[in-house]
Lab assay of single mutants.
Amino acid sequence: ENVVSAPMPGKVLRVLVRVGDRVRVGQGLLVLEAMKMENEIPSPRDGVVKRILVKEGEIVDTGQPKIELG
């Protein structure tokens, strides 16, 4: 899985990584606000952040790609 998608609709509060960052499985990639709760979205695997496809403040839909890992 190279693309991390939104598990639920919500607002991107914070992006916790930058392009080029090495990430580990379970590491937080971003914080999504859904139903007035903050949810940290974890990396599904070890890898390197290739692209960030969302911006802080953006509203995302379920299944929308957010971060691409290499």
Rank of each mutant, 00 (worst) to 15 (best):
E1A: 13
E1K: 12
E1V: 14
N2V: 14
N2S: 13
N2F: 15
V3F: 15
V3H: 09
V3E: 06
V3I: 14
V4T: 04
V4S: 04
S5T: 13
S5N: 10
S5D: 06
A6Q: 04
A6H: 04
A6W: 07
A6F: 08
P7A: 12
P7C: 12
M8R: 08
M8N: 07
M8W: 15
P9Y: 10
P9W: 11
P9D: 06
G10E: 04
G10N: 03
G10L: 02
K11G: 03
V12C: 09
V12Y: 00
V12K: 01
V12I: 13
V12Q: 01
V12R: 00
L13Q: 04
L13H: 03
L13P: 00
L13F: 00
L13K: 11
L13V: 12
R14P: 06
R14I: 10
R14T: 06
R14V: 10
R14M: 06
V15Y: 02
L16E: 03
L16I: 07
V17L: 00
V17D: 04
R18F: 05
V19N: 05
V19R: 05
V19G: 01
V19D: 04
V19A: 07
G20L: 05
G20W: 03
G20I: 05
G20T: 03
G20Y: 03
D21M: 07
D21P: 00
R22S: 12
R22I: 13
V23A: 02
V23S: 01
V23H: 01
R24C: 13
R24L: 11
R24W: 11
R24A: 11
R24H: 12
V25F: 12
V25Y: 11
V25E: 12
V25D: 05
V25H: 10
G26P: 01
G26K: 05
G26S: 06
G26N: 07
G26A: 05
Q27L: 06
Q27V: 06
Q27C: 07
Q27M: 08
Q27Y: 02
Q27E: 09
G28Q: 06
G28V: 15
L29M: 07
L29V: 08
L29G: 01
L29S: 01
L29R: 00
L29Y: 00
L29C: 07
L30N: 00
L30F: 11
L30C: 07
V31D: 02
V31W: 05
V31A: 02
V31L: 08
V31P: 00
V31M: 05
V31S: 02
L32E: 01
L32C: 08
L32D: 01
L32A: 00
E33K: 04
E33C: 15
E33L: 15
A34V: 14
A34G: 10
A34F: 15
A34D: 07
A34M: 11
M35Q: 12
M35G: 14
M35A: 11
K36D: 15
K36N: 15
K36M: 14
K36G: 15
K36I: 07
K36S: 14
K36F: 14
K36H: 14
M37K: 13
M37N: 10
M37L: 11
M37A: 11
E38P: 09
E38T: 10
E38K: 08
N39I: 15
N39Y: 15
N39D: 05
E40L: 15
E40Y: 12
I41C: 09
I41A: 02
I41Y: 05
I41P: 03
P42F: 12
P42I: 13
P42G: 10
P42S: 11
S43N: 02
S43Y: 02
S43F: 02
P44M: 06
P44E: 05
P44F: 06
R45P: 01
R45H: 10
R45C: 13
D46C: 10
D46K: 07
G47F: 01
G47H: 02
G47K: 01
G47I: 03
G47M: 02
V48H: 09
V48I: 13
V48K: 06
V48G: 03
V48Y: 14
V48S: 06
V49K: 02
V49Q: 01
V49M: 00
V49Y: 00
K50R: 12
K50F: 06
K50P: 00
K50V: 14
K50Y: 07
R51W: 02
R51N: 09
R51T: 09
R51D: 06
I52C: 04
I52V: 10
I52T: 01
L53V: 04
L53I: 06
L53M: 13
L53E: 03
L53Q: 03
V54F: 01
V54Y: 00
V54M: 01
V54Q: 01
K55V: 12
K55D: 08
K55E: 11
K55G: 08
E56C: 07
E56F: 06
E56Y: 06
G57S: 04
G57L: 05
G57C: 08
G57E: 05
E58D: 15
E58H: 06
E58M: 10
I59V: 12
I59T: 11
I59C: 13
I59L: 13
I59M: 14
V60I: 08
D61N: 13
D61K: 15
D61Y: 15
D61H: 14
D61M: 14
D61T: 15
D61G: 12
D61C: 14
T62P: 11
T62Q: 13
T62M: 14
T62C: 11
G63K: 07
G63V: 05
Q64T: 10
Q64R: 07
Q64D: 10
P65M: 09
P65C: 08
P65D: 08
K66R: 04
K66S: 15
K66V: 15
K66F: 15
I67W: 03
I67N: 03
I67M: 10
E68Y: 11
E68V: 15
E68L: 15
E68T: 11
E68S: 07
E68C: 14
E68H: 10
L69A: 03
L69F: 10
L69Y: 04
L69N: 01
L69H: 00
L69E: 03
L69T: 02
G70C: 15
G70W: 15
G70I: 14
